[in-house]
Nucleic acid binder design. Structure first.
Lengths: 114, 114
DNA sequence: CGGGCATATAACTGTCGAGGCATATTCGCT
DNA sequence: AGCGAATATGCCTCGACAGTTATATGCCCG
């Protein structure tokens, strides 16, 4: 069910921007705020959401609160995506087969259809 | 841009449920509504959102409107995920290295995960 | 061509979340 | 202790969105 938190956290474009920023390196709140053109309180709130979704972790450094990405939820997203990726591959496959049929290129063995 | 539409479409749990349903097979609106326990108008609206996000395509069959998944946006999500997946692998890597260091087990070379 | 089915759309309402401002909290420093 | 910097929190407002009811549209068939 923290699935829901994850999705709604990433639903916001500002939050995705923050996540992208943190991909480069961990950053304190102020830096994030400035980089995203957000006010400090707003940034703090977004970070709270990200924290509660498990996407972000905090390390306290004096008055600074340095936020860093936590890779785990990304894996959860990846897992969610899995079955759909299968669909995607299947459709690529079909496209490839169709191309093969209309060309005289060497054909690879038909993959076992499940 | 349409990235935003994709995320906000998938932000809704009912919509994710619909998408999951359509993964099994294409379905007409009524069937989706019943399966998700949603009213017909609500279902129609959700499907409209999914359509506008490009996640779903319609085929008209008499009065039925059969909705099916479009794999393309899934690929977009996958692409978005890419850089984060790298982070994830890196952290797995680090974990592995740490385990290697504290054990006397033979160390294996980092597996080229693609 | 009228009736009934499947679906879309309109109008309205309640809820939720984002942003802004002011203020509280926490920590380091002198 | 007192001050200033960095961040969190409370309160408020506003707009976006989901759900409902009622109605419109398109399509097949008799």
């Amino acid at each position: 069910m923290s699935d829901a938190a994850l999705w709604s956290a990433l639903a916001d474009p500002h939050r995705r921007a923050i996540v992208a920023l943190l991909l480069e390196r961990p950053r304190p709140v102020g830096e994030i705020a400035e980089a995203c053109g957000l006010s400090q309180p707003s940034t703090s709130k977004h970070l709270k959401v990200l924290r509660e979704a498990g996407l972000v972790r905090v390390r306290q450094d004096a008055q600074r609160r340095v936020h860093a990405l936590d890779p785990a939820p990304i894996a959860a997203l990846d897992a969610w995506l899995e079955p759909y990726r299968r669909l995607w591959n299947r459709s690529l496959d079909a496209l490839g087969r169709r191309l093969d049929e209309t060309s005289d290129a060497p054909r690879h063995p038909p993959p076992p259809k499940d």
